[in-house]
Design a binder for these strands. Structure first.
Lengths: 229, 229
DNA sequence: GGACAATTCTTTACGTCATAAGGGTATCAG
DNA sequence: CTGATACCCTTATGACGTAAAGAATTGTCC
């Protein structure tokens, strides 16, 4: 809470040993663990290890693991641009925003595993939101519609990132393995699910195509909403 | 895997004590635990307890917790309709599909916490997908576009459900508490994030409005795609 | 300089978790 | 009846988050 919005305040001089760590250092180390080893590997002990300390030492700085995760989440989002150039129109700006966010999630797939049920969002998260709302406000849509579109865009990009990150959509090898598993487990699959079979991606389909197509549909919907306004 | 697609096969007679449990009974108990106590409470021990057995007894039937969760996931989806009436057109059918799925997630919020990175999906999951693809195929869209729309719809409904389930969007009380927290943590918030402030929901805004608006935008986008075809 | 209080860390401990593995008992087939 | 198999319980292990006690370090005040 206070840690999330407090920023790097200069520590006032107090009795006791000089601190060997700081919140920032701990958060950075935790992000590194999550980035390199995944969320499942993130433990207080693991982070402590990376800093040459015990896991318990971290509790001097952060009240608990949940709070550490909140801090990590917001800190990682600082990577993203806060503003977008709408000179070429809102559509390319939104597409740019979505592309940045997708690639961000693919660099930090652990982000997708952090619960949205946090007590409060942090400054960087709000900055990302601010950038998108600023673009959409320029379409002339009212706050209610903007909210709907914002939710849609976030959900979409998160979903697309999740698909890529978790199912290895970019990996034809893995996809083939999955199809094989399915064949073995479910003989007669094609007859049972003819529609799904029809919609199956081809083996050589470019990786990001579903994202591109989905975004196109979504932006067309936004355009229709703008016209209705 | 085999358990997922095997169904309730009549147990062949084998030496050894008569089984006191079955996969189905275990999965049902596990779903009950998740429904009533949340995903965090789901442990082999907890499920075993509910069945008057130890947690270890479950391993006779399922290879591990991950597999149990896969089974739960697919089993829960059996609740949903597999087919939709497109007599009134594809739009109401999709809206009906989305509404069913949203309400389903709200009844079983733990579903949203299950990783999509599973080795293979089960029969009920495919049935839900089959129903949606069948509707969308009726629009005349090709398989590639249908895939994009399908992804979008799933992401959207999941995201909307997550927002409701995790942030208590239906709960004005909780929302006010969050605003208060934000005020305290971030003085000058309004000046720093003017766009976000502009887009803030009113205190008395109906709960499901963002979902309705988002779906409308999305369906307009689908309509545009259909026209392009 | 010493006493006191506060602080930074380590260590020990606890309860919880998933699951490996051994052992006792029940059942079936020959 | 014997041998093999299966259903469970029990014991154990390693991992987790975190409570709490203790040792060492530092700052302030007299």
């Amino acid at each position: 809470m206070a840690l999330l919005w407090g920023g790097g305040e200069p520590g006032e001089v107090r009795p006791g040993p000089k601190p060997g760590l700081s919140v920032d250092v701990i958060v950075e180390a935790a992000i590194e663990v999550a980035d390199t080893e995944g969320m499942a590997a993130l433990s207080m002990r693991r982070v402590g290890e990376r800093l040459g300390r015990t896991g318990m030492a971290l509790y001097t700085y952060v009240p608990g693991k949940a709070e550490l995760i909140d801090l990590m989440y917001d800190r990682a989002l600082a990577e993203l641009p806060a503003e977008y150039d709408v000179g070429a129109g809102w559509r390319p700006a939104v597409a740019s925003w979505a592309g940045h966010l997708l690639r961000f999630y693919l660099r930090h797939p652990w982000m997708l595993q952090v619960s949205q049920a946090r007590p409060v969002a942090g400054p960087n998260e709000f900055a990302v939101l601010e950038g998108l709302v600023a673009i959409l406000r320029g379409t002339g849509l009212g706050p209610r519609r903007v909210r709907g579109v914002v939710a849609l865009l976030f959900d979409f990009v998160r979903g697309a990132a999740r698909t890529c990150a978790e199912t290895g959509a970019a990996d034809g090898e893995r996809r083939r393995a999955r199809s094989l598993l399915l064949e073995q487990a479910a003989p007669g699959f094609t007859a049972r699910f003819p529609m799904v079979t029809w919609a199956e991606p081809a083996a050589d389909e470019p990786a990001g195509e579903t994202f591109t197509l989905g975004l196109h549909v979504l932006l067309d919907g936004v355009e229709a909403a703008v016209r209705e306004t």
